[in-house]
């Protein structure tokens, strides 16, 4: 298992340890520059921190122009089946399947609409090639319902 695989695994499991019996091996292809690798790992870690820090107060924090955030009074909660978005003003609940939950997670981690597809493709298989388009449709729907804002 290479470092990139380890990081991807860590993203999914929250554990940045190679599974029992697996050894870290050199990446295939040209060996990346140590500085570049450090930057990559740092970037991934910062993204995790941003994702973990996304909470109810997060929507009040100023962010970059291109990023989206949960609308005020909206709360996101992970569930076994995916996630829920709870709009506390209207007390309405919206359930999300695992992929839709992944889209919202990426949005909370700071992904812009442009970056969203790329980030999702790094995590989900997309045999039909529809992931990016469907993710953007979902984002538009969430914006229409007042659950996400720019």
């Amino acid at each position: 298992m290479g470092y990139s695989d380890l990081i991807r695994l860590g993203w999914r499991t929250g554990k940045f340890l190679a599974p029992a019996g697996e050894r870290l091996t050199r990446e295939r292809g040209p060996r990346p520059d140590p500085e570049e690798r450090r930057g990559l790992i740092r970037g991934e870690m910062e993204e995790i921190v941003r994702r973990e820090a996304a909470d109810a107060l997060g929507c009040l924090a100023p962010r970059g122009e291109a990023t989206m955030k949960l609308a005020p009074f909206v709360k996101f909660r992970e569930e076994k089946f995916g996630a829920v978005l709870f709009e506390t003003r209207s007390e309405k609940v919206f359930t999300l399947n695992p992929t839709a939950a992944g889209v919202v997670r990426e949005v909370l981690a700071g992904a812009s609409e442009k970056e969203l597809g790329e980030r999702l493709l790094a995590r989900y298989a997309d045999p039909a090639g529809k992931l990016q388009g469907e993710a953007l449709t979902l984002v538009r729907q969430l914006k229409d319902k007042g659950l996400l804002t720019d």
Partner: peptide
């Protein structure tokens, strides 16, 4: 919506 699929209450 089936509330029994939620791991915890949505509100108190």
């Amino acid at each position: 919506m089936r509330i029994d699929s939620f791991h915890a209450p949505l509100a108190v």
